[in-house]
Simulated scan of single mutants.
Amino acid sequence: MPNENLQDRVKGAIMGAFIGDALALGPHWYYNLDELRRDYGDWIDGYTDPRPDRYHAGMKAGQLSQAGFILNLMIRSLIKCNGYDKTDFCQRMDETLFPMLDGTPVCGPGKYTSQSIREVWRQRIQQKLTWEQTGSHADTTEAIERTLAIAVRYALQPDQLASAITENTLLTQSDETVVAMTVAYGAVLSLLIQGHTLDTELSNKLLKLVKNGKLPFHIVTRDNLQNPRPGDPDPPRAGRFASPDALLTPSYMAAAAADPEIHIEPAWKVSIVYGMPCAIYHQLPAAYYLAARFHNDFESAVLHAINGGGQNQARAILTGALTGAQTGLSNIPWRFIHELEQSTILVKLATDLATAIE
């Protein structure tokens, strides 16, 4: 059984993701910040009801979106199977989620279904394709939002983490760059769960895992990104991903957060700096920045993620998991847990997952 501090960080990561998801339910996808402030005031500081004409209309403050629903399915599968089992997870999607969908956006748990999941539904239900044929070119973070639980489960086993996240990501997204960035996020989260901080040294730790053959990225430089010397052999290819650049982003964002000459004030404006849209290359830099800047302040991290508008739900899920892994569940303000619907059940799931880590 893992030690108490590691268990606390595991529970913090999982609950951080659920909290981030639910916090954005009301103010989700406001790309006009004036409209966001008009409907929710100058600062959103808790769970809110969605407006009748918005994406999650009919839901209530503290409930989860469909992203949270799928994350719940993933955690239950990991617990039941004592690890990632593609067949079990896919069966849960087929039998639990897909009967609630009809292929349209405004449908299903959370009252909204993302494009990548709608594509999989059409391929599975209408076209009768196998799960090996379902991946699309969506460049979004839906895979991260569920595979973060895989990263938690295999936080001490980076090679298994990378393999399982790759396999699961390909169910919905086939672009190799998206897959690489999804695996990189999982690797970052795993180090935070081990007790590392999202700082300027984290990427070097990730690169050491690459050189040790634990993460499937190709690398051509020597330590600290030094250029190859004359006569150096070409390093052996460590895996399927062409470049380790996705592993460098976290520490660059940490450096930006620590640099007194770089000012993003207030911090929610990180969404303007890196972009409000859904694409993974907008979302990850913002989440890494907030999780590095507020590494010991869960409330500030997730609320700045929410108040930045745009695809703030993905930003808050990713930021919530990264920051929760650093603070632990014990340092997440109680109100975020108490006001989250079915929080007792969700904490129990997080606890059961924590005890399964080897």
Results as ranks from 00 to 15, higher is better:
Met1Pro: 09
Asn3Tyr: 03
Asn3Pro: 00
Asn5His: 01
Asp8His: 05
Asp8Cys: 10
Arg9Glu: 10
Lys11Arg: 10
Ala17Pro: 00
Ala17Leu: 06
Phe18Leu: 14
Ala24Glu: 05
Leu33Ile: 03
Asp34Ser: 11
Arg38Tyr: 06
Arg38Ala: 07
Asp39Lys: 14
Gly41Phe: 04
Asp42Cys: 07
Thr48Trp: 05
Thr48Asn: 05
Asp53Pro: 01
Tyr55Pro: 01
Tyr55Met: 12
Lys60Ser: 15
Lys60Phe: 13
Ala67Thr: 11
Gly68Asn: 05
Leu71Asp: 04
Leu73Tyr: 05
Ile75Gln: 08
Ile75Ser: 10
Ser77Pro: 09
Ile79Cys: 01
Cys81Pro: 02
Phe89Asn: 01
Phe98Met: 02
Phe98Asp: 00
Met100Gly: 03
Leu101His: 03
Leu101Ile: 05
Gly103Leu: 12
Pro105Cys: 06
Val106Phe: 12
Gly108Asn: 07
Lys111His: 15
Ser114Asn: 15
Ser116Leu: 01
Val120Tyr: 01
Val120Ser: 03
Arg122Ala: 02
Arg124Ile: 15
Gln127Tyr: 15
Lys128Trp: 02
Thr130Met: 12
Trp131Cys: 01
Ala138His: 13
Thr141Met: 12
Ile144Ser: 02
Arg146Gly: 03
Ile150Lys: 03
Ala151Gly: 15
Ala155Pro: 02
Leu156Met: 09
Gln157Ile: 06
Leu161Asn: 02
Ile165Asp: 15
Ile165Pro: 14
Asn168Leu: 15
Thr169Ala: 15
Leu171Met: 14
Thr172Val: 03
Val178Gln: 00
Val178Cys: 03
Val178Trp: 01
Ala180Ser: 13
Met181Arg: 12
Val183Asp: 04
Tyr185Ile: 09
Leu192Thr: 02
Thr197Asn: 06
Leu198Asp: 04
Leu202Thr: 00
Leu202His: 01
Lys208Ile: 06
Gly213Leu: 08
Leu215Lys: 04
His218Gly: 00
Asn224Pro: 00
Gln226Glu: 11
Pro228Gln: 01
Gly231Thr: 00
Gly231Trp: 05
Asp232Arg: 03
Asp232Asn: 03
Ala238Glu: 12
Asp245His: 09
Ala246Met: 08
Leu248Thr: 02
Thr249Asp: 04
Tyr252Cys: 09
Ala257Thr: 04
Asp259Tyr: 06
Asp259Arg: 09
Glu261Cys: 02
Ile262Thr: 11
His263Tyr: 05
His263Trp: 10
Val270Thr: 13
Val270Glu: 07
Ser271Arg: 10
Tyr274Trp: 14
Ala279Ile: 03
Ile280Tyr: 09
Gln283Val: 06
Leu284Phe: 06
Ala286Ile: 06
Ala287Asp: 11
Ala292Glu: 07
Phe294Ala: 06
Asn296Leu: 10
Glu299Ile: 02
Ser300Asn: 14
His304Thr: 12
Gly308Phe: 11
Gly310Tyr: 09
Gln311Phe: 08
Asn312Trp: 09
Arg315Gln: 12
Arg315Gly: 11
Asn331Trp: 12
Ile332Phe: 10
Arg335Ser: 08
Phe336Cys: 08
Glu341Ile: 04
Gln342Cys: 13
Thr344Ala: 15
Thr351Gly: 13
Ile357Phe: 10
Glu358Lys: 15
Glu358Ile: 10
